[in-house]
Design a protein around this nucleic acid. Structure first.
Lengths: 346, 346
DNA sequence: TTGAAAGCGCTAACAT
DNA sequence: ATGTTAGCGCTTTCAA
């Protein structure tokens, strides 16, 4: 690859003049500029990143940390929406995105390596699982520009972008209650798989059950499983078979869970939505023209990613920029799986 | 961030010794090494990427070019699988991945900027749409290490990894023919949306129709639409309403298309698979526990991505490494949407 | 076993 | 308007 010097030689000027032309600062005569530009084009020269980065201490690159495997099924539609948003932000600010292999299984794994190496100017962390305390401390110690998406670190040096999952949980139950439902269950995950988002949805469910239906023991209508539909299917089926009277509605922590629940309910011999209503979370199913379409909740993922990119850029430009926190709304999504409860026969 | 000099000062040695400890080359006494390592830990030092890159001309970063939007629906499950594989490869070789905003709409857009800037050591191009001729020439001119996934550039300086879509198309029709089908349609895309993969599937379909059923005018049973289900739905419905006798099977260019076709066929009043069989492509649907599950074809995406990463690494390590091309098999996936054709009544 | 010097490509500051 | 110098953090080469 040609360097500034090669261009300088070809154009018959010093490399400093080339630098001036590239960065468009300082005085360069029209004629010289033209000669330099021709030489640049002729050689196909692009300024070396390493040289510039070393000199300026800037890389124009944002690190994106995703503690989630790409390509592992459904959960990634969440990831994809966020990345799309981050990409839009990066385009606006002319930054690239750096993804580093993530290895939580390795005890020596260094979350912050890309920054410490000065390979990136800042980090966006997609918070599907929380960062270790120690990482927080390091971020503070080195004043690393950092934005977390989908979690809310207490840490005053870390900005975050999130949705109001608790409220969305509450509102989902409210939608069902306003149709006349009372026997409303929650399908969540086993504790090992929880993240703060899902926990908040469950909290919202519980609060709604307490405040709207005066139910303090809603825990008894909570089912827990793993992410996969098979696991959900089993959990829901078993619970329904244990109950003397079936639940009339299920609020599910994710759309994928809702899908498993839907099949379980149908296989038990109950109809959806006539006997059991179902509401999911993430508004992703609609992409797939399901039949029935599943009522759900939608997070503005692209907007969230974009905002995160904007915030990180502000932190990079001005190290004294104060922490920014931002809660996006969750929108209800209509679907075929919601109806009033069946008329009680007793 | 601390530098080598800071570490050297703290450990009471020259920075050269620090460099030796880090790279584990040259002689360093056990005692000195210990002191340096302690200093490194105490300061939380990581070697600066820019300095190293400038000096060695290596960035340990792979550029990934995706001329597809993240987060735009289904097609991205393809993208995700590949990226997952690339990530696995990168982990193995301790590389990071650089994603740059992709802007085909910008006439000045430089596909190769990340390489020209020496921000990456090589490029993996996900070939959902072909690279312009001019880009090929530049790759050749600068001997850029490059691997294309999902397309087969003639260019002898570009390695590629692909699946045999033509054959998979042929085999899909063969599966249907062996069940007794003859009236088999193909649901593809309008020409503007074609890429070589989809084109190959169509070619396989046509060849099978010719060779297995002696049909030279299979074009008349080809439907074309956009990617979205609504568009597919309309195209299929219209075609069926025009035919005097319905087709008994549809081979669809993607699973998403298959989904749209499924709904169209059902809404016409035909049963799947009793009246119409459907085969899709990509084996992605199974993730979602559809009912019915859709018969399909599966590409080993993760393997492909991984292989691409391996090849690019070989090119980087040895600039004289010859072009490598690699065709992965496509596996048939069973599903509920395939059965023998209805018994003819005439 | 350790250190000193040179240079990778670039830009900021200072000449001319 | 253009050129020279120094230095960003690192490694390679040569010296001690």
């Amino acid at each position: 690859m040609p360097t500034q010097k090669d261009v300088a030689k070809l154009a018959g000027v010093s490399f400093m003049t080339v630098s001036r032309v590239i960065n468009n600062n300082g005085y360069v005569s029209e004629e010289t500029r033209k000669r330099v530009e021709d030489a640049i084009k002729q050689l196909g020269y692009s300024p070396s990143f390493a040289g510039k980065a070393l000199n300026r201490g800037r890389t124009d690159t944002i690190g994106v940390m995703t503690p989630v495997r790409f390509g592992d099924g459904f959960g990634n539609v969440y990831l994809l929406g966020l990345i799309r948003g981050i990409e839009l932000g990066c385009r606006k600010y002319k930054k690239d995105m750096l993804f580093s292999p993530f290895a939580t299984d390795d005890p020596d794994f260094d979350y912050l390596r890309p920054y410490k190496q000065k390979k990136v100017d800042g980090l966006i962390y997609i918070g599907m699982q929380s960062m270790p305390e120690e990482v927080h401390r390091e971020i503070q110690r080195y004043s690393i520009p950092c934005v977390v998406i989908g979690d809310r670190p207490d840490d005053h040096s870390i900005s975050w972008v999130d949705t109001d999952n608790e409220r969305a949980g509450y509102d989902s139950v409210k939608r069902l209650v306003s149709l006349g439902h009372e026997r409303i269950g929650f399908v969540g995950l086993i504790p090992e798989m929880y993240n703060s988002n899902i926990q908040d949805r469950e909290n919202g469910y519980k609060r709604a059950m307490r405040e709207l239906l005066s139910m303090d023991d809603s825990e008894k209508w909570i089912m827990r499983s793993r992410f996969e539909e098979v696991s959900v299917y089993k959990a829901v089926r078993e619970r329904f078979e244990m109950l003397d009277r079936p639940l009339t509605a299920l609020f599910c922590a994710t759309d994928r869970i809702a899908l498993g629940a839907l099949h379980a309910v149908k296989d038990i011999g109950l109809r959806v939505p006539e006997d059991v209503s179902i509401i999911g979370f993430d508004g992703l199913i609609k992409e797939f023209l399901f039949n029935p379409t599943i009522a759900s909740n939608e997070q503005p993922l692209v907007e969230m990613g974009k905002r995160a990119a904007e915030i990180i850029n502000r932190h990079i430009e001005n190290p004294n920029f104060p922490r920014e926190t931002c809660i996006f709304p969750v929108y209800p999504v209509d679907g075929d799986t919601v109806a009033p409860p069946p008329v009680s026969l007793n």
